[in-house]
């Protein structure tokens, strides 16, 4: 290398180093205050702190390389997005039901290998969740299950809702804020599956429109074809002392409509929800574009569909 080239090389390295370190820590994270942090058993708390807290709390601990200027911009974005989804430092701001639901989400995204992200684990090996850690989390959420037989209030609510429903006329046209319209014909579609949730005490029936139904039979569901529609009807569980569970209060109808161009930002699916017997459209455009897909990303490998029955029920930890 000539002296001139050597000098040029040194100048280039210096310039790069200056660029990298000039704003070291400049895009730092504002850790803010902790207002009602999660209170979990010590062994659960330890797992959450080592694997989740950097992005899902106000107690983010940055490594030195996370503070490098260019990298820190991406890190800050990840942390802000992480806190938006879930913030263990603001846990008490959630309702008890929402807290419980979040914990089941946490366990399921970990179980699916979606969290912590592989890209994060490559540089933060302390965050790896072991099989023993998963067992601890599973035992913890299992302990949150409350199995309740239907009491007189639940029975009366169900009966009252039923009596007003059979007397009411069919609801007029309902359209979600994102343009997805309720399709009354769903009741004539093929039943895709029936599910019973022990994490939140609901039962559901899922319907597939003719395109989706045909796609299941043809094993053409990865991705699902354009025009596929899946509708989920959800009720609270009413369980009697004989262990028989029937639909109680109707909760909502949830829609997934496949059009990969129209809904490209949400995995090719448009999501909508209609609440109560009056099918009141839920949310706004922003909520429908974030809330549903956030959860459905857990099964991205299934083209975002949860409720399909598998031949082998692999109850992995």
């Amino acid at each position: 290398m000539s002296k001139r080239n050597f000098m040029f090389f040194i100048a280039l390295v210096t310039a790069l180093a200056a660029l990298l370190f000039a704003g070291y820590g400049g895009h730092g994270i504002n850790n803010g205050s902790t207002v009602g942090e999660i209170k979990a058993p010590k062994e659960v708390d330890n797992i959450l702190r080592k694997a989740c807290y950097d992005c899902h709390s106000n107690d983010t601990k940055l490594a030195w390389f996370d503070r490098l200027p260019i990298i820190s911009i991406a890190v800050r974005k990840d942390v802000e997005e992480g806190r938006r989804h879930l913030n263990f430092s603001a846990w008490e701001s959630l309702s008890p039901t929402a807290r419980k639901a979040k914990l089941w989400d946490v366990y399921n995204v970990i179980r699916a290998g979606r969290m912590p992200p592989i890209s994060y684990l490559q540089t933060h090996s302390k965050a790896i969740i072991t099989t023993a850690d998963r067992q601890i989390l599973k035992t913890y959420i299992d302990g949150l299950i409350i199995k309740q037989l239907a009491d007189s209030t639940a029975l009366e609510t169900t009966l009252s809702q039923y009596n007003s429903w059979i007397k009411s006329k069919a609801v007029s046209r309902r359209v979600s804020p994102n343009g997805i319209a309720h399709m009354p014909a769903y009741k004539t579609w093929q039943v895709m599956s029936a599910t019973s949730r022990f994490d939140n005490g609901t039962i559901r029936i899922l319907y597939a429109n003719p395109i989706a139904s045909q796609a299941i039979q043809n094993k053409n569901i990865n991705p699902w074809p354009k025009g596929s529609v899946i509708v989920k009807a959800m009720w609270q569980k009413l369980e009697d002392k004989e262990g028989q569970v029937r639909p109680g209060k109707f909760i909502n109808l949830q829609y997934m409509v496949k059009d990969k161009r129209k809904y490209s930002s949400t995995g090719g699916w448009g999501f909508a929800r209609f609440d109560g017997p009056q099918l009141k459209p839920y949310g706004d455009v922003l909520i429908l574009a974030t809330e549903c897909i956030d959860c459905h990303k857990t099964v991205e490998q299934n083209d975002f569909v949860f409720n399909l029955s598998t031949k082998q029920s692999s109850e992995k930890l």
Binding site: A112, V299, N307
Partner: peptide
């Protein structure tokens, strides 16, 4: 349900 712990399916 293979895809969600907390759910049973037919």
């Amino acid at each position: 349900n293979t895809f969600w712990y907390g759910s049973n399916i037919n």
